[in-house]
Simulated scan of single mutants.
Amino acid sequence: MGAASAIFLVLVTLFLPPLGVYAIAGCGADLFINICFTLLGYFPGHIHAFYLEYIYFDRQEQAKAGQINYSRAPGIYSERIQRGGNGYGTIVQPTG
């Protein structure tokens, strides 16, 4: 994701936290947890959504720098977020 996509994602998350989580995690446990947090109060849903987005973009930056983080971030159930969106598919990524 580029900078414009990240800014758009943050703006979407400000208004609808579950939509921002869905964009990075898809339909799964993290989305369900965020919906519950948002129903309990608008502020907890934001905290959870921005935490997921922080981990997602942090793992993307680590992968671009060639650092592989094998530890799991606590409280995140989506493998897509844990890997920063990387590691899916069978196509070998070009190096260099």
Results as ranks from 00 to 15, higher is better:
L9E: 11
T95W: 05
F50E: 01
G87P: 13
L9H: 15
A4V: 07
M1Q: 06
P44G: 10
N34E: 05
D30P: 03
R72D: 14
Y51M: 06
L40D: 02
F57W: 11
A49R: 13
F32D: 06
T13N: 08
G87L: 14
N69V: 12
P94Q: 11
F32N: 07
I35V: 14
L52W: 05
F50N: 03
Q67M: 06
A25I: 07
P44F: 02
A25Y: 04
F37Q: 02
A4C: 00
Y22A: 04
A29Y: 13
I81G: 01
I33E: 04
I35P: 09
L11G: 03
T95N: 08
G89D: 10
I35H: 11
M1Y: 09
V10A: 15
P74E: 09
Q93H: 10
A65Q: 13
G45Q: 14
F32A: 11
I35S: 08
S71C: 08
L16K: 06
A65I: 00
R72A: 14
R83T: 03
F8A: 06
F32C: 09
R59N: 04
Q82K: 04
A73D: 12
R59K: 03
S78I: 11
Y56A: 11
F57V: 05
D58M: 14
S5G: 09
F57H: 12
R72T: 08
F32H: 02
N69G: 03
S78W: 13
G85I: 08
T90L: 12
R80T: 04
R83K: 05
G66L: 03
S71T: 08
A4H: 01
Q82F: 01
A65V: 00
L11C: 02
V92R: 13
Y54M: 14
V92L: 08
I76V: 12
Y54L: 14
I7H: 12
E79I: 11
Y88A: 06
P17R: 14
L52A: 03
F37G: 00
L9N: 14
E53K: 02
Y54D: 08
I35Q: 04
F32K: 07
N69W: 09
Y70R: 13
H46F: 01
K64T: 04
V12E: 10
A29H: 15
F50K: 07
L39T: 00
I7C: 05
G87Y: 12
H48Y: 15
Q82Y: 02
R72S: 14
I33H: 02
G89S: 04
N69Y: 12
Q93M: 11
A4D: 03
